[in-house]
Design a protein around this nucleic acid. Structure first.
Length: 871
RNA sequence: GCGAAAGUGGCGGAGUUGGUAGACGCGCUGGCCUUAGAAGCCAGUGAGAGAAAUCUCGUAGGGGUUCGAGUCCCCUCUUUCGCACCA
């Protein structure tokens, strides 16, 4: 018979909602704890990744509630974005309609899962009461000089018809639709995240983040120390700045490499005829897609400009080449090429027969130019380098940079790989950028009183490949806020990552219509205590949010340096070893599983499958296993209900007394006090002679079996609390409860137990729903009620264990001979080392194996083993 | 190429400081119950040998440290992830 999960789950979801137990309070004596799951994009029904994410978050939330915290677990929707717009185009609908539909479906499923979410704080980024503050933040960025517009080559996705930030290009392809990204010259809005590059490298403000994520962000920001060197253009005053991390090789520079996008090249091209070789080469390179352009395998090509630069350190003329292997947007966008000591320059110089010069000599093996097959990039000592000859290359860098700085040839500098965040998107379904262009006044910010700029709803989508906003005339054409003359709105919308960069703070004060949020409430809740989400956000969302948080701090809106104190990156749910996806046809629909086995089963399975940060493989059989386990728990209580109720009455009555007149407003202190009283009482009733029962075999009226059960109860409580608190390993915590349940079931003759033993048996049963609350809250709550408990489980406090019952009177020692297990002995706890040794040597098998051998050494590891070394 | 993490039965995974490898679950095998099935219950389940006691082998492969290594050190291989013409 299956347990009636459907009835139970509906019942408790209603009770929890009616009692509003998940509504976080803004003012309370309790300590706050903020648990946040990744902002979901409302794609429709929940998928397994969501279910996994929220099951983890809910387990943590409920654990913290039991611990007495005032917990906030909010939820909302990251509801702007291209997929919604594309979906609406395909279905000849409007994204507002499809998005709201999807949200309704998701909301229903959230409720069916029984997640403890504070729905009074729900937000949705496509609602103007949220996105107006995104516009407000844009204005602040602009006012602080952190939002600016520039023309440059941008990552362009033809399929999405929009620009992508560097973080959104994966392997040269669009992160959303995987089509190949190409470069397109456009005027775009940027946020100056590079101003915060240095601070973003500093993770000292977080409490617990995975190293992996920190490393990924650090690599992404890519700080490198080097030298900027200033070359003069021959017969001109113009300077060409280059960046190098190897100033020690400057004397070996024989040519200079520029990308076709370099401003100097652009000027030179103007002097050339349209069909000149230089034009042809530049056009060819610039039209290549990002993958080919930036791949290491691409053949290095270039064209000589006929121009020369002057190496400032020795006055030598170096050829200037336009090449396909230099990136415009790293360093200064120009490279000094040292073919003898850089592999790329080496290949290029060989191909085009450009001179080389050795300036670093190998200590062991003298380098000869004619014999070199590849560049020498190892350390060595300097040659052909004027007054620096003979210095060790690594030591020379500092001296050379300083000398150049003194003589105005360059300066020490730091370069970051991180580039400014391009936030313009040429799409409709996003947050309008609050800018108006006036012919007279130029770029004008939309005044605060005109915010929010609402997205026009009457648009025709999918008619052209252009941004649909361009065709909404009465929206685009406005009066200049400054001079009142006709002007035009900016039609770019903001990247949706802007919306999700501050949503966690909005939850602290979601209904504020004067500010994005008040400082008081933000400081109440921030930083987020525990954030749970996928690793895929490591360098996008998680870095943008850190940037935004620091910006908000600088505006005085928050007083913390980091948005998320602890981060748990949950693993993917895979099926047949691969990520679930529609195209692979391996998607498992959570709804079906909930209908068939219930929400508790889904949660228990998700948490039991593997540690939360690892990928977990979906298994239909595994789900049945989780279901079987919950049924076994149910049956245990069903079969022993009278016994448990009867033995539980005293404790629940005493608990009721202690909390009289205050039955729903539990506080941590009262809770603990009640717990303690209950504890002492049960200590008296449970063991009539607890102390003597620990002694060797006598005076106790408890069977060994029951003592083992009591040990199991207390051990399991200790283990579960530890696994959750210290490691968040829910899988082993659940395994421990399963094991305990097996132990409880091993007591066969419950009727024949004496009263004390019955009390111990009942204690062992009651611990199960108490511990299972965080994993299977519905069933646990039902059992708790069934046995006569009057409070709800989150009010019950964490279960407590008594160390006294973890002390065993006998300990099993393993006997090893030369490291191999040869026997076991049971020894009383207070046996001396000599007694243990003696017992160990009496074991038959040990005697046999030691025959004719000399014992060299005996090692005793307390409470574990005896190791015998013999020859 | 650089950086990081990982590699344990048929499968998912246990194995906090070196101390009984394989907890727990799935699957499988046999049995009970049942008209039958489902569900449930009991027993077994790393490989090999043996009637059994027990023994040998076993944590990607090879070496080392140690009374004792999945765990520590060195080398090799494989997988996953991130970065990748970054000067």
């Amino acid at each position: 018979m299956e347990y009636p999960f459907e009835k139970i789950e509906k019942k408790w979801q209603k009770i929890w909602n009616d009692k509003k137990i998940f509504n976080a309070k803004d003012n309370t004596d309790k300590k706050n704890y903020y648990v946040l799951s990744m902002f979901p994009y409302p794609s429709g029904a929940l998928h397994m990744g969501h279910v996994s994410n929220y099951s983890i978050a809910d387990a943590i939330s409920r654990y913290k509630m039991m611990q007495g915290y005032n917990v906030m677990q909010p939820m909302g929707y990251d509801s702007f974005g291209m997929p919604a717009e594309n979906f609406a185009i395909q279905h000849n609908s409007h994204p507002r309609i499809t998005t709201d539909n999807n949200i309704a479906i998701m909301r229903k499923q959230f409720d069916m899962m029984g997640f403890g979410i504070d729905w009074e704080r729900e937000v949705s980024t496509c609602h103007s009461d949220y996105y107006r503050w995104g516009q407000w933040f844009f204005k602040k960025m602009y006012e602080k000089g952190l939002a600016y517009k520039k023309t440059s080559f941008q990552n362009w996705c033809d399929d999405c018809q929009t620009v992508l930030a560097n973080e959104q290009v994966e392997d040269g392809k669009c992160w959303r639709c995987s089509s190949v990204v190409r470069q397109k010259e456009l005027e775009q809005w940027f946020f100056k995240i590079t101003d915060y590059a240095e601070e973003l490298l500093d993770f000292s403000g977080v409490i617990d983040w995975p190293e992996r994520v920190k490393t990924m962000q650090t690599n992404w920001i890519g700080k490198s120390f080097g030298t900027e060197i200033w070359f003069k253009l021959e017969n001109s005053k113009e300077l060409i700045k280059v960046f190098t991390t190897r100033p020690d090789t400057i004397f070996g520079c024989t040519f200079m490499a520029l990308p076709p996008e370099h401003p100097l090249v652009t000027n030179w091209l103007k002097e050339e005829s349209e069909n000149s070789k230089m034009h042809q080469f530049c056009d060819k390179v610039m039209n290549e897609d990002t993958i080919t352009r930036t791949s290491e395998d691409t053949t290095k090509e270039g064209i000589f400009t006929g121009r020369f630069a002057i190496n400032p350190v020795n006055g030598e003329k170096v050829q200037i080449w336009i090449t396909n292997y230099v990136l415009m947007d790293y360093g200064t966008g120009a490279v000094m090429a040292v073919p003898a000591h850089d592999q790329r320059d080496f290949e290029f110089a060989k191909k085009y027969d450009i001179p080389m010069k050795i300036v670093i000599q190998n200590m062991e093996e003298n380098l000869v130019l004619e014999e070199m097959q590849k560049a020498y990039t190892e350390p060595g000592f300097l040659v052909n380098s004027g007054k620096f000859d003979g210095m060790e290359s690594e030591n020379s860098m500092k001296s050379i940079s300083e000398w150049m700085a003194k003589n105005s040839m360059g300066k020490e500098t730091v370069t970051y790989r991180l580039r400014d965040w391009g936030v313009s998107r040429q799409r409709y379904w996003g947050n309008p950028i609050p800018i108006i262009y006036c012919e007279d006044c130029g770029t004008v910010l939309v005044p605060d009183e005109d915010l929010p700029i609402k997205l026009p709803e009457n648009v025709e989508l999918g008619k052209t490949t252009q941004n649909p906003l361009l065709s909404v005339d009465d929206w685009v054409n406005v009066k200049c806020p400054n001079c009142g003359k006709p002007a035009r709105r900016e039609t770019d919308t903001m990247d949706t990552f802007v919306d999700s960069s501050w949503y966690y703070a909005r939850y602290a004060d979601p209904k504020n219509d004067k500010m994005p949020f008040s400082k008081e409430f933000a400081d109440n809740w921030l930083p987020v205590d525990q954030y749970i989400g996928g690793i895929e956000h490591a360098v996008m969302h998680l870095m943008y949010a850190r940037f935004f948080h620091k910006f908000m701090r600088d505006l005085g809106m928050v007083n913390s340096n980091e948005p998320f104190a602890r981060l748990l990156t949950q693993g993917m749910v895979t099926k047949d070893g691969a990520k679930m996806s529609k195209s692979k046809g391996n998607v498992v629909d959570p709804q079906y599983i909930i209908d068939r086995y219930g929400a508790d089963t889904v949660r228990v399975f998700m948490l039991f499958a593997s540690p939360p940060d690892k990928d977990s493989e979906w298994s239909d059989e595994g789900v049945k296993g989780a279901f079987r386990f919950l049924n076994r728990v149910w049956r245990l209580f069903d079969e022993n209900l009278d016994l448990i109720k009867e033995n539980n009455e005293t404790t629940s009555r005493s608990k009721a007394e202690t909390t009289e007149g205050n039955s729903h407003e539990f506080t941590r202190k009262e809770n603990l006090a009640a717990k303690e009283r209950e504890g002492t009482q049960s200590k008296n009733t449970v063991t009539l002679s607890p102390e003597s029962s620990l002694g060797k075999g006598s005076g106790s009226d408890l069977s060994a079996e029951i003592k083992k059960l009591r040990y199991s109860t207390h051990f399991t409580i200790k283990k579960v609390l530890n696994d959750i608190e210290e490691r968040m390993h829910f899988n082993t915590a659940i395994a421990a409860v399963m094991e305990h349940l097996n132990n409880v079931y091993s007591i066969k003759n419950v009727d024949k137990l004496n009263d004390t033993e019955k009390a111990i048996f009942v204690e062992s049963c009651v611990a199960i729903p108490h511990l299972m609350y965080v994993f299977a809250p519905h069933l646990s709550e039902e059992l708790w009620k069934m046995i006569g408990k009057e409070n709800l489980l989150h009010e019950a406090g964490l279960p407590e264990f008594n160390e006294k019952y973890l002390v065993q009177d006998e300990i099993t020692y393993v006997i090893q001979i030369m490291g191999k297990v040869r026997g076991k002995i049971n020894v009383s706890v207070d046996a001396t080392d000599d007694e243990i040794k003696k017992l160990a040597l009496e074991v038959e098998n040990v005697k046999k194996l030691l025959e004719g051998k000399e014992i060299k050494k005996m090692i005793i590891v307390p409470k574990k083993l005896v190791s015998i070394v013999a020859k």
